[in-house]
Design a protein around this nucleic acid. Sequence first.
DNA 1: ATTCTAGTTTATAATTATTCTAAACTAGTA
DNA 2: TACTAGTTTAGAATAATTATAAACTAGAAT
Lengths: 137, 137
Amino acid sequence: MQQKKEIINKLRSSNLRPTKQRILIAKKLFDRKETFHFTAESLNKTVNKKMQKRISLATIYNTVEAFKKAGHIREILTNTSKSYYDTNIKSHHHFYDPDKKKLTDIDYQEVVLKKIPNPPKGKKIKDLEVVISLQKK
Amino acid sequence: MQQKKEIINKLRSSNLRPTKQRILIAKKLFDRKETFHFTAESLNKTVNKKMQKRISLATIYNTVEAFKKAGHIREILTNTSKSYYDTNIKSHHHFYDPDKKKLTDIDYQEVVLKKIPNPPKGKKIKDLEVVISLQKK
DNA sequence: ATTCTAGTTTATAATTATTCTAAACTAGTA
DNA sequence: TACTAGTTTAGAATAATTATAAACTAGAAT
Ligand SMILES: [Mn+2]
Ligand SMILES: [Mn+2]
Ligand SMILES: [Zn+2]
Ligand SMILES: [Zn+2]
């Protein structure tokens, strides 16, 4: 949960001008109790639901990309054609339900990794994601 | 490594008619020592390299989908816009190098999972994938 | 061998998600 | 108030994939 001032600070600290559009999008993303998962399409709907002035889809994409680069959201692996994002930027993992097309969080400590192979020379690990796909029982 | 008869049997046992195209594609995929990762695009190139008669891209896509449904290949999670497939169908995990756009196998036993949350009611686990993204050191 | 037909291949069009373009707009500073 | 770099926007372009429907063929039946 974040108030307008905090949101503006968050934008400023990432070298993003606090425009009307970014503030509105940031509110929808960050001014709430629980983190959640979204796509560009779902965010576009959320943001433009019964709004007098709409935000263009290009701006939705631009802003999602900017927030991702700034580390305010992260992209989640799925096998779907569209990109999924997460307002939970703490390291954690996911169930993916292909029927509902929904991600669910799994706490980081639920997954323990034994030794993993060394990354190739000159490379280090940026990120480790576990995705558990579900199916009907 | 599989010979032509084995390949035909593999196709037949999956209710796939052993057509010229499927046999040729199956040879490229399965008649080799090591498993490998590919995309529709890379497979299309491989299959149609200096070939007198080409196989259409539609058939590449159709066949990849058919082989996936039959369980002869599996799709791997990545954050790229194109789908990646694996001729290694044993349970295992991956490094992903976004610079080279290359997947590398990690043996299944390199990753150990502590208790994981129960899947939602009516759902069971279809698959668990670990993807480790790399970056320049 | 010839005929038949369901399954398959193919060229091409359509779709979908995303990115690009470049003109209009605006936040923030001078 | 004027300026400008950054931002937004509508719409075009791109890229991967899927759909369409006509031509072809594997394999069974005759
Ligand atoms: Mn994805
Ligand atoms: Mn993918
Ligand atoms: Zn999450
Ligand atoms: Zn693999």
